[in-house]
């Protein structure tokens, strides 16, 4: 029986992973755009990205574009796999294959 991924299952982290997973492999989203797409606040988003990065589900790249710092978040292969399994588990629950 598949288990729900407790790291991904938190609502905002689920939204972050959904946003990153829909992009082509190795393509990331800027912090500001990710904030807008997930409807998160700065501090909240930063904390949850940190949790996902510690689990190895996302990679965080900080760079300067001109004089402005820019943070880009990308789903790793492990993150994409975990997200896929999590979604499959949710679908199994809906289909009644899991209690």
């Amino acid at each position: 029986m598949a288990e729900l991924d407790e790291i991904i299952h938190q609502p905002l982290r689920l939204r972050i992973m959904a946003a990153l997973n829909v992009l082509p492999v190795a393509t990331g989203l800027e912090f500001a755009r990710l904030k807008k797409l997930t409807g998160a606040t700065d501090g909240n988003l930063g904390a949850h990205i940190e949790t996902l990065a510690r689990a190895g589900y996302v990679a965080v790249d900080k760079a300067f574009v001109g004089k402005k710092p820019q943070t880009t978040v990308t789903a790793t292969a492990a993150g994409r796999g975990a997200f896929g399994r999590h979604v499959a588990t949710l679908q199994e629950i809906i289909a009644g294959k899991q209690p």
Binding site: A18, A19, I93, I94
Partner: peptide, 25 residues
Amino acid sequence: MIDSRQASAALSDINDVVHRVRQSQ
């Protein structure tokens, strides 16, 4: 563990974000 209603809500949330990302692109 969660029930099917909560699972549906989570999937609906995922679909909403996917729609937003695609529209943004």
